[in-house]
Amino acid sequence: MLTGRFALLEYDVPGPIVMHERMILDHVESDDYVVCTPDRDLFVEQLTVENSDLRSFRLRPQPHQLPPGVPLGRVYALPAWNAGEIAAIKDEARRLAQAEKAQRGLAQAGGVGPPLGPPVPVATAVLAEAGSGGAGVHQLTPGVPTWVAAEAAGGFFFGQVVDGVQSPAVPLSKAVAATKLYEMGWKLTGPRTAQWCLNYLVVEGLGLEAHHERFRQLCRLDSAAWGVQEHFQLSMMLRQLLQVDCYNGCNSMGIELMFRRLQTMEYAHSEKARESEPRLAGGKLALEEQYVFGSVVRHAGTLMIAPALQSHVKEETEREVLLAKNLRKAKEERELAAKKGGKKKDGKGEDGP
């Protein structure tokens, strides 16, 4: 769900590149949302790369913060509305969303139903599920959103208040305060990269669908290029598994294999991205060299390829090359020894008296 976020849309039109900011106000269905433009126009728009009107769209990582690679001069940003104006915009967006849902047959029979009541706070939901005698329940205040443990793991029990979460507590929202890798006995060679990839996506701030679009732009690929359609389908599968089904992406072998495949395809096209880097960044140094000189850890500026996986592939490839080289040399030595032995038997290879 993108409600409450701010999107930057690049329309597929000729002329200079302009990123139009949209305030995402309400959800209609699927990828359709009610948005507000800088001119205060409200309408329903499809926020996905499948929208043929868009060349790309990105999300602000935080309000007033631009995603990597988007210069401020190209953004047609929203104005600084006051609290009263924002409240009026949200009220208008709610009515527009209800009318659109009714037109699509998504509302209650007979027209738009009554407005929903206030959401149930997290603390109240935990109280109802755990019961009045559950451990840690006495620490919760009904009606006050509180971060609590959703399961008994990592030294926490269900319903226990979790301190140190940086995000503000919002009713019905979820957050992962800490993760831990467990040995699962997988028959998988090389490092586990899912956690690295998830951290990369958080730093990048785009999400899986927009990351796919960025991968295409960096490598200058069209939809018919090798691996592009598979990259998109795997990205959509991962989005549903992680955001809808709420799988633990750090401890799922299937998700690890999906991330491995995504990294394989991005690595296969990485040379195309490197070829354009000096022209984009200026000078003759690659971006990796510039980041090393500046002592900066480069996350959002590269493709999604875990360094540990690259090192593993390099070591395994070098080992196989060395093995093949040794086998070839051993074969040559055996063939040479066989030739010398044949000459001695014929008396042609012996020294004279």
Rank of each mutant, 00 (worst) to 15 (best):
273 A>G: 10
260 R>S: 00
267 Y>W: 10
278 P>Y: 07
283 G>Q: 03
248 N>S: 13
285 L>G: 00
261 R>L: 02
257 L>K: 06
246 C>D: 14
270 S>M: 04
282 G>I: 12
264 T>Q: 09
252 S>V: 08
236 M>F: 04
286 A>H: 04
277 E>C: 00
278 P>N: 06
261 R>Q: 05
251 N>M: 07
241 L>K: 02
249 G>C: 09
272 K>E: 07
281 A>T: 08
279 R>L: 15
274 R>M: 06
238 L>K: 00
240 Q>S: 13
256 E>R: 01
258 M>H: 04
284 K>P: 00
283 G>N: 05
242 L>P: 04
276 S>I: 15
253 M>A: 06
237 M>E: 09
271 E>Q: 13
241 L>P: 02
269 H>N: 12
241 L>A: 08
286 A>T: 01
254 G>R: 13
248 N>T: 08
278 P>Q: 08
241 L>Y: 10
236 M>Q: 10
285 L>K: 03
259 F>T: 02
280 L>E: 11
249 G>H: 07
270 S>V: 01
279 R>V: 14
283 G>T: 08
235 S>F: 07
265 M>P: 05
239 R>I: 03
243 Q>W: 09
284 K>E: 03
250 C>L: 14
244 V>R: 09
232 F>S: 04
272 K>Y: 13
267 Y>V: 08
263 Q>P: 05
254 G>W: 15
259 F>V: 04
283 G>Y: 10
282 G>F: 12
271 E>R: 14
283 G>P: 04
256 E>D: 02
